[in-house]
Design a protein around this nucleic acid. Sequence first.
DNA 1: GGTTGCTATGCGCCTAGTTGCATAGTAGCC
DNA 2: GGCTACTATGCAACTAGGCGCATAGCAACC
Lengths: 181, 181
Amino acid sequence: MALEHAILVSLEERAGSGYELARRFDRSIGFFWAASHQQIYRTLKRMVERGWVTVEDVAQEGRPDKKVYRATDGGRAELTRWIAEPTEPATMRSELAVKIRGASLGDTDAVIDEIARHRAHHAERLDVYRVIEKRDFPDPASLRGQRLHQYLVLRGGIRAEQGQLDWCDELLDALNSDRDS
Amino acid sequence: MALEHAILVSLEERAGSGYELARRFDRSIGFFWAASHQQIYRTLKRMVERGWVTVEDVAQEGRPDKKVYRATDGGRAELTRWIAEPTEPATMRSELAVKIRGASLGDTDAVIDEIARHRAHHAERLDVYRVIEKRDFPDPASLRGQRLHQYLVLRGGIRAEQGQLDWCDELLDALNSDRDS
DNA sequence: GGTTGCTATGCGCCTAGTTGCATAGTAGCC
DNA sequence: GGCTACTATGCAACTAGGCGCATAGCAACC
């Protein structure tokens, strides 16, 4: 399970509340490991029980009190242990692939529409990543350590989205030609 | 959920037992939607209850009796309905990305080893797909209908594995340079 | 006679993740 | 006063999937 470890990475970089973590996940880490706030709260609770993080109640003015979480030495040890432990590469799961395989039995036009939807989604995502790349990493060759690692993960996102986009284009080309012929 | 629909696609192409489906999933459809035999048996049972498939007990000589499943009109209707229904593109989930983000806090060499392991895995997968591509689809331009769809799904697998492979190479280059400098 | 391996089925428990809902304070707007 | 929006927390029920285990017939080999 990587959610706990993704949270540990985030808390290592900076302590924060469940709410703050949820927003960070919406923006950066979450691009590569999505998590809802419910999931994060539940996981944080479990991590406190395991001694990987500590909680501190922080009273706030003008807004509800919050609980700030910090990684412990135990949490850091767990993260190091997990990083060194080999994990199986995730098997590719594509609903779109299943739909394409089923296209001959159903409505090919519906499948084409669905592919177009996915294409738009990936194009949008790619655009977001490209903006981040240009804004935050204008000189990749000079990057070292943590900043380099952030950049490399972003590169993975860019490659994945570009790959999906190219596949969608190949699909649309081929299916449209097949329909028209 | 796509497992039920992946099974429906497979049963449309040819009726079969749970065991046969499990083996088909090991080979073709399972490259893009993995499923264990336990999962398939459980799902088939549910699909019978819903009226999407029918079962027929078939006595065999020299081997245990089997239950052959066949898609019903209801199953075909469900498949058509599902194909036309928009589904959200799956959010990318990469444990490797989380490990890279955590590399600065742990053992960079362990992360590099892990990346090398993933690289080997994707190279092997890509090789399998390339062999299938050459063997089963020597003349892609001539493909129509179902055969074309099979080919296009395979193309998605090739693109995905190639993309992961390239990313792994970029990662290894960058992390090794960073470590040596 | 014993072991291994293939075909064939399935249960039970657990974890991870999703969905929907609930609560509650503050602040700004109309 | 009522509405909306943001901050902040969390539970309950459900779905999907993974892991381990169990059963059992038949064939081939040693």
